[in-house]
Amino acid sequence: MTFKTLTAIAAGTALTAGAALAEQHQMDRSDWPESFTVGTASQGGTYFAYGSGWANLVAEELGLSGGAEVTGGPMQNMALVHTGEAQFGMTTMGPAAESLEGTNPIAPGLQMTNACAIFPMYQTPFSVTTLASSGIESVSDIPDGARIGFGPAGSTSDTYFPRMMEELGVNFERRNGGWDDLGGQLQDGLLDVIAFAAGVPVPAVSQLEVQTDINIIEFTEEEQQQIIDAFPVSEFSIEADTYSTLEEDARSVAMWNFAIANCDLPASFVNAVVDTVMSDNERMVGIHSAASETLPENWDKNKVMKWHPGAAQWFEENAGADIPDDMIHGG
Rank of each mutant, 00 (worst) to 15 (best):
M1W: 12
T2F: 14
F3C: 07
T5H: 12
A10Q: 12
T13D: 13
T16I: 02
A17P: 13
A20N: 12
Q24W: 03
H25S: 02
R29V: 13
W32M: 04
W32Y: 10
W32E: 08
P33N: 08
E34I: 04
F36N: 00
F36T: 00
T37D: 04
T40L: 08
A41L: 02
G45W: 10
F48S: 06
Y50M: 14
W54E: 06
N56T: 07
A59P: 13
A68L: 10
E69S: 04
V70G: 09
T71G: 03
G72Q: 06
G73S: 02
L80G: 06
L80A: 13
H82P: 13
H82T: 08
T83M: 13
E85Y: 15
Q87P: 04
M90A: 12
E98L: 07
L100H: 04
L100W: 03
E101A: 04
T103G: 01
I106M: 04
G109V: 00
L110G: 00
Q111A: 04
M112Y: 05
A115N: 04
A115S: 07
F119S: 12
F119Q: 09
T124M: 14
P125A: 07
P125I: 09
V128D: 06
L131A: 07
S133Y: 02
I136A: 09
I136W: 09
V139W: 03
V139M: 11
P143W: 02
G149R: 00
F150W: 08
G151S: 02
P152M: 02
A153V: 02
S155H: 11
E167I: 07
E167A: 05
L168E: 12
G169V: 05
R175M: 10
G178I: 00
D180P: 03
D181A: 09
D181Q: 01
G183C: 04
Q185R: 11
G189W: 07
L190A: 14
F196C: 09
A197V: 05
V200A: 06
P201T: 10
V202S: 06
V205S: 11
V205Y: 10
E209T: 13
Q211S: 11
Q211P: 01
D213N: 09
I217K: 14
F219R: 14
E221G: 08
E223N: 15
Q226I: 07
I227F: 13
E235Q: 14
I238D: 15
I238L: 15
I238W: 12
D241K: 15
L246S: 07
E247H: 03
E247P: 05
A250T: 11
V253C: 11
A254Q: 14
N257K: 07
N257I: 15
A259E: 04
N262L: 10
C263H: 09
S268P: 11
S268R: 14
F269L: 05
F269E: 07
V274W: 04
D275S: 05
D275M: 01
V277E: 01
R283W: 04
R283D: 01
V285F: 07
I287T: 04
H288N: 10
H288Q: 10
E293P: 00
N302P: 03
P309D: 08
F315W: 09
E317D: 12
D326E: 05
D326Q: 05
I328A: 00
G331M: 09
